[in-house]
Design a protein around this nucleic acid. Sequence first.
DNA 1: CAGCTGATTTCCT
DNA 2: GGAAATCAGCTGG
Length: 226
Amino acid sequence: MAPALLGCVLEHETAEGLVAVELTEVEAYTGQNDPASHAFRGQTGRNAVMFGPAGHAYVYFTYGMHFCVNVVCQPEGIPEAVLLRAGRVIEGEGLAAARRSALRPAVASPGTATTSSPDPAPPNPVLRHAAPGRLAARDLARGPARLCQAMAITRAQNGADLCGPASDLRLRPNPGDARASDPPTINAGPRVGVSSAADRPWRFWLADDPTVSVYRPYKKRLTPRA
DNA sequence: CAGCTGATTTCCT
DNA sequence: GGAAATCAGCTGG
């Protein structure tokens, strides 16, 4: 399933508009026999969608600030999924860039809220710069959390039916994909940032595509966070 | 360019 | 309590 998803298009239609991304990099997670999978130790609140039917979005929140999206790939009860790691924005580039470069509200934390501003209160008092510099087109969805930010995919999309034509978040084959006559070269290698089963070459990407994220092997933290 | 670190929450042991 | 399917900014070579 993972290499088959390369070249397909993920679309998200929101009140702000439509953003479409052609997938250029994915990773497979086979669940119960894969120690790197969130489903390895069985079903939990977070990973429940992976145990549901295929074709739905498993969105998870990680590192306290990022979302990542997967496509569930097996029937109910078999928690296999493919992480969407990167893509090329083919529609709604302006909107994607705005989402990626705008000042973003920080996640609410106790004690930091409201009151101290003498000015008319901004929409959210705690703001953080997301991407001060100019943003290259190739970087809009280059990485799993960047892809979610560019497409406004959050917890709200967890469980979305990617194959439902009425769904706001949907996956479709790429009509401009010429692979039938001129198949793209697909490369495979170890997954990014994965500490266990790091030898399994289950990351797949389109060769020579600039939107593919930079490979970073797993590194243990020198000073673990409290 | 490689390497480190802060940000910040959820989940699991 | 500690790691995590990350990212951006900064440092030093």
